[in-house]
Design a protein around this nucleic acid. Structure first.
Lengths: 201, 201, 201, 201
DNA sequence: CATGAATGAGACTTCATTCAT
DNA sequence: TATGAATGAAGTCTCATTCAT
């Protein structure tokens, strides 16, 4: 009974946090972090204002939590997409990268607000948190490891991956969010060609 | 005399605006846009609070003005660097790009705060303003035009330039500002190799 | 005209401060410092909330300002009473002290809330401020000086004055404010006898 | 067994109350009543927040409880000191008063925070409670009675005691807590002389 | 009796903006 | 044009108190 009770309380806690995160996500992406008031978040989440401060240090702490959760979800899905495709057909490292990137691009096409939110609030702290995120289970971490290893796992290979990630992120942001006059679909061929040429030895 | 008076007034206006811009630049880069209050800006600029509103719509209007001015300066210098080198030795298009990029990279290495400011406050509106910026004289616009033309001036060439600009910006930002663990000097070889491979047909 | 304008502004400033002080005094003495909200003060003073922070650091800064002003007034009046009586009849040092003390006692009988306010918020900082208070003009300071000098101006005399001040303050507070069952009028004879016996050599 | 169980529960109750009182005392004297939150008290006491409300009406109720307990202790000790000395040598009423006062003064010299706490939170209610405090056993009450009786037990004698108590309290507070520039040891001779002169007929 | 998560009223404070001078 | 005192809406955050477990 003790265990059941504790579990229930824990669930309740997760529930409140989830409510706050969901409400905040909606507001952050629709009217922006700056224009979102704590009052709005708690009203939409259906909790009291004090409850907010039970779970978050301040608004920007919640921004981090939202981004962490959402980006984890997106990346998990992309990893799953690669694994699924891998099962159907044998793919080399480049194929893996392209499938992974394409999944991200397609997702952000459909959720440009999230892309904007993530991009505007990046910090190395957050990156580090994301990499050691407790909710990212062991299997996923292994995937990342493999991903890197497949690239050759040399310093050079890691640097190329870093350049590719930076490039893809920036092109997506500029194209999808800022609306710079190359629609993402039009620039995709050149983007993927660039990836190919960076990876190719 | 009439003319002199007018010029004086204009100078006076420019002076106030310049004071505001300089004060704002210092504050934006040292404590961040969010933490900078109009009060701080006018105090440091040595003008009255009301005066601020004679020159700027609001704080974010001034952010744009500051970025526009500073980025124009940086780009002008990079263009000058390319022109100078071109005079000393014949360079092909790729050489031009590399020299241009390297100038930017080196500059931002020495002024990471400005890089952060620009990167965090990019908007397509601002890009457009920058491209049609009145203070960017004709000669400079011609330079840009040539730069693009040299690349081949096809749609494909423009896309590749766009990808390169995005990539370089993101790598610089991630490396210099976020401090992601590839120091810019260590990643430069791979970055320039990537540029080369993207441009090369 | 410049001077007139400046004077007007200064008057205006004094006016706002006076309004705040008056409103605060009423609230502090009627419902207590703890129960007085900034909102109440500004509403009663008829100024905007921001104006409060233009003149005071926080609520406790205003408490100090109120006490400083009020206690200065009370002491000034007591000094005036002594001076007036002195003109009518020759008085020795002891007479002076008694007249002074009696004036204070009678005043606080009529304004027990002020006594409570002052007593509860005493601090040595405030004492020091009171002693160097700019609004206490030179003539008054001379009075205090004479007062002390008349007592003999030895270390011993100063200590006795300190003991008397402490004693009178405490007896008044206990009797008038706490309502300890010796009404001030009933205990006055013994209080003044005590003063006499402390001063008498 | 029933009795034992009851005693145990009572002890348990007393224990929680004691924990709360001790924790509160530490906080009240170190950071002040105003800055002490219920949260701090219960955390330091090692009990749950709800428990606080099983034992106290609110924070100020606990302030009273703490003061009542501590001041009872201090007074009990002072009374004991008088009794002890009385046994060794015959003392008249004045001697008794001086010994009693000196004991208090010496104690508060070593615990100025407690003096501040008591002084700032006096109320007649609390005085009354102190006088009828259940934990002050009969013997002690008799002592007080004797103390008063020795003074003559006339209205006048009671008034003089009241004046002395007020005087000593105020001088101690001003000297020890506020730090008004007469160190308590330096002013003691005059303070005791004042007591003597007030008591002497 | 004991717990501590949740509450929400309301305190405090900031600061962009206005406008009379 | 230039000023800066005044404004007050908007915001953050606290913390005493409750109550379901």
């Amino acid at each position: 009974m003790e265990t059941v009770k504790k579990a229930k309380i824990t669930d309740n806690k997760s529930l409140k946090m989830a409510k706050l995160r969901d409400a905040a996500y909606e507001l952050f992406t629709s009217i922006g972090v700056h224009n979102t008031r704590i009052d709005d978040i708690v009203k939409n989440a259906g909790v009291a204002k004090g409850t907010f401060y039970l779970y978050c240090k301040d608004k920007y702490d919640l921004v981090d939590k939202v981004i962490l959760r959402k980006s984890t979800d997106v990346i998990n899905n992309a990893m799953k997409a690669v694994a699924d495709k891998q099962q159907k057909q044998e793919m080399n490292f480049l194929d893996n990268v392209i499938v992974f990137v394409d999944h991200l691009v397609e997702y952000f096409k459909s959720d440009k607000k999230l892309l904007a939110l993530i991009y505007k609030n990046l910090s190395w702290d957050l990156y580090e948190k994301a990499l050691t995120y407790e909710e990212m289970d062991g299997a996923k971490q292994t995937f990342i490891q493999k991903f890197i290893t497949n690239g050759g796992d040399s310093e050079i290979a890691r640097q190329r991956l870093f350049i590719i990630v930076s490039m893809v992120g920036a092109v997506c942001y500029n194209s999808i969010v800022l609306g710079i006059p190359y629609p993402i679909d039009r620039i995709k061929p050149e983007l993927y060609r660039s990836i190919t040429r960076i990876i190719a030895s």
